[in-house]
Amino acid sequence: MQRVNMIMAESPGLITICLLGYLLSAECTVFLDHENANKILNRPKRYNSGKLEEFVQGNLERECMEEKCSFEEAREVFENTERTTEFWKQYVDGDQCESNPCLNGGSCKDDINSYECWCPFGFEGKNCELDVTCNIKNGRCEQFCKNSADNKVVCSCTEGYRLAENQKSCEPAVPFPCGRVSVSQTSKLTRAETVFPDVDYVNSTEAETILDNITQSTQSFNDFTRVVGGEDAKPGQFPWQVVLNGKVDAFCGGSIVNEKWIVTAAHCVETGVKITVVAGEHNIEETEHTEQKRNVIRIIPHHNYNAAINKYNHDIALLELDEPLVLNSYVTPICIADKEYTNIFLKFGSGYVSGWGRVFHKGRSALVLQYLRVPLVDRATCLRSTKFTIYNNMFCAGFHEGGRDSCQGDSGGPHVTEVEGTSFLTGIISWGEECAMKGKYGIYTKVSRYVNWIKEKTKLT
Results as ranks from 00 to 15, higher is better:
Gln2Met: 14
Met8Thr: 12
Ala9Phe: 14
Thr29Ile: 14
Asn36Glu: 13
Pro44Cys: 05
Tyr47His: 15
Leu60Ala: 05
Cys69Met: 01
Phe71Gln: 05
Phe78Asp: 03
Thr81Gln: 13
Glu82Gly: 07
Glu82Arg: 04
Phe87His: 03
Phe87Gln: 03
Trp88Val: 04
Gly94Pro: 13
Gln96Asn: 14
Cys97Thr: 03
Ser99Cys: 12
Asn100Gln: 13
Pro101Gly: 04
Cys102Val: 02
Leu103His: 13
Ile112Phe: 14
Asn113Ile: 07
Glu116Gln: 13
Cys119Gln: 03
Pro120Tyr: 05
Gly122Tyr: 05
Asn127Tyr: 11
Asn127Gln: 14
Cys145Thr: 04
Lys146Asn: 09
Lys146Leu: 11
Ser148Asp: 09
Lys152Tyr: 11
Glu159Leu: 08
Gly160Ser: 08
Arg162His: 11
Cys170Asn: 01
Pro177Tyr: 01
Pro177Ile: 01
Cys178Arg: 00
Gly179Thr: 01
Val181Cys: 06
Val183Thr: 10
Ser187Val: 11
Thr190Glu: 09
Ala207Ile: 11
Asp212Asn: 11
Asp212Val: 11
Ile214Val: 13
Thr218Gln: 08
Thr218Pro: 15
Ser220Phe: 09
Val227Asn: 11
Gly229His: 07
Glu231Met: 09
Ala233Met: 08
Val248Pro: 10
Cys252Arg: 00
Val257Ala: 03
Cys268Trp: 01
Lys274Met: 09
Lys274Glu: 13
Glu281Leu: 14
Thr290Arg: 09
Lys293Ser: 08
Arg294Thr: 01
Ile297Ser: 08
Pro301Ser: 08
His303Asp: 11
Asn304Lys: 09
Asn304Ala: 10
Asn306Val: 07
Asn310Arg: 05
Asn310Cys: 05
Leu318Tyr: 01
Leu318Met: 04
Glu320Thr: 01
Asp322Pro: 01
Glu323Gln: 14
Glu323Gly: 04
Pro324Tyr: 04
Leu325Ile: 03
Leu327Cys: 04
Asn328Pro: 00
Ser329Phe: 05
Tyr330Phe: 13
Thr332Gln: 04
Lys339Ile: 07
Tyr341Ile: 06
Asn343Pro: 03
Asn343Met: 05
Phe348Asn: 15
Phe360Leu: 15
Phe360Asn: 15
Gly363Asn: 07
Leu369Arg: 15
Gln370Val: 03
Pro375Gln: 12
Thr386Met: 13
Phe388Arg: 09
Met394Val: 10
Glu401Thr: 12
Gly402Ile: 14
Ser406Asn: 14
Gly409Gln: 11
Gly412Pro: 11
Gly412Trp: 10
Pro414Val: 14
His415Arg: 00
His415Ile: 04
Glu420Ser: 14
Glu420Met: 14
Thr422His: 03
Thr422Gly: 02
Gly432Ala: 11
Glu433Thr: 11
Lys438His: 15
Lys440Pro: 07
Tyr441Gln: 03
Lys446Ile: 01
Asn452Gln: 11
Thr458Pro: 01
